[in-house]
Design a binder for these strands. Structure first.
Lengths: 215, 215
DNA sequence: TTATACACTGAACATATGTTCTGTGTCAAG
DNA sequence: CTTGACACAGAACATATGTTCAGTGTATAA
């Protein structure tokens, strides 16, 4: 993406205003609101500067649409800044029980909202709250939330949520196939991996993110 | 907040559409766009239903403002859904060096955007990326991001980022005053706390959140 | 049977909002 | 000195958008 290096002070003021307006209102300002905030008396000049900012990749506009602008993000696929994805809270995850995920299991009203650029994938996501200390080998604490993408296959290096039927437990570990075994590697580098029979490993999802909210 | 329990199917369709529209466009739809999506031919009926949803606390509207609606969140202070706070990336945090935070130290362009309801506070925040394995006693991994609120005082129970001048290290631990000592309690419950002279503890900030992005 | 509440309809209207037009001023390059 | 690019200004205009109006239909309660 080509970006002009030196923005005028007006252009900086415009971008700053748009960001703060979005934070307060969760929708973008109008041309006139931008003008008022940036000390520009003419809608034509606001339009001119927005056109420049759009050309240089700082924002995106939709023609003939009220409030039809959004800030560009530096994500490779230009996911718009301020766009969020809702990740439904699907319950809890604890060592001694398998995760139950399925249609209708979780309440779409109770969801975690995350800005899209925090996540590499946006489909088939759900959030699980950790119960107990059993996940600390994954550096995941009681009460943490893990964002999981529902899938039943894993690739080497994926952090997975897996149900081990021989042990009767759910675990979060890095997954590697090795010959006729599966190596499950804790995130904590001071801890040893476990080796299990592939038949007992039931992949429930791939972990994309961990969120810990304190106090 | 008083909420009507049973929404009509039209009202559910309206809310669902608004959410998905916000996700795709990062600004809300118009009355007519809602009508088109929900199969309502009359702007008056859309307006009527939005009025009901507003009365029941599902969304907020601004009068005579284009796209002047936003979804309600269940946060105690009714922080609007989709509103985000920008947390500037202020560099890294590693054991062997104090955090350097100050005006202008960090680049406001490089920021983490989080939905406001994830954070109890929204001022004086910055984000630090963890370098090294030294924070695993806080269940924080190399590469994780910690959201810190800049403050130099701590209350018992706060998770703090503290520089210990006698040890020459930065640590993340729960802070407790005890008689003439400070107890710093690791997040990992299987690990022992450390007791230090209050004079060597330099509080750099309170940790509000940890974010781990995988792959 | 009547009254009331709720949901809906199409149309009209008022205002919000974005775009375009015609110009001026400044600065740097030729 | 002239030219061209850039930034700006006020006004006009067109369309987008939200609100209101005068009604209809249905269901329930009295």
């Amino acid at each position: 993406m080509v970006r002009k290096k030196t923005l005028s002070s007006r252009q900086k003021a415009i971008l700053k205003f748009i960001r703060s307006y979005l934070g307060e209102n969760s929708f973008p300002p109008t041309i006139r609101e931008i003008g008022a905030a940036a000390g520009i008396s003419s809608t034509s000049v606001v339009n001119y500067n927005l056109k420049r900012l759009q050309e240089w990749g700082y924002l995106l506009r939709q023609k003939d649409v009220s409030r039809g602008l959004r800030l560009a993000a530096d994500a490779p696929d230009l996911v718009p800044a301020g766009g969020v994805v809702r990740v439904p809270m699907a319950g809890t995850i604890a060592a001694g029980e398998p995760i139950e995920i399925g249609e209708g299991v979780f309440d779409e009203e109770d969801a975690l909202e995350l800005t899209r650029d925090l996540l590499p994938q946006h489909d088939n996501l759900y959030a699980l709250q950790v119960r107990g200390d059993s996940m600390i080998d994954a550096l995941v604490n009681d009460g943490d939330i893990v964002i999981v993408q529902h899938q039943q296959e894993a690739r080497d290096g994926d952090m997975v949520a897996a149900w081990l039927s021989d042990r009767g437990e759910t675990t979060l570990k890095y997954f590697y196939r090795e010959r006729d075994q599966v190596r499950l590697q804790p995130a904590n580098p001071t801890m040893q991996p476990i080796y299990v029979d592939p038949a007992v490993v039931h992949i429930q999802g791939r972990v994309l993110m961990v969120v810990r909210q304190l106090s």
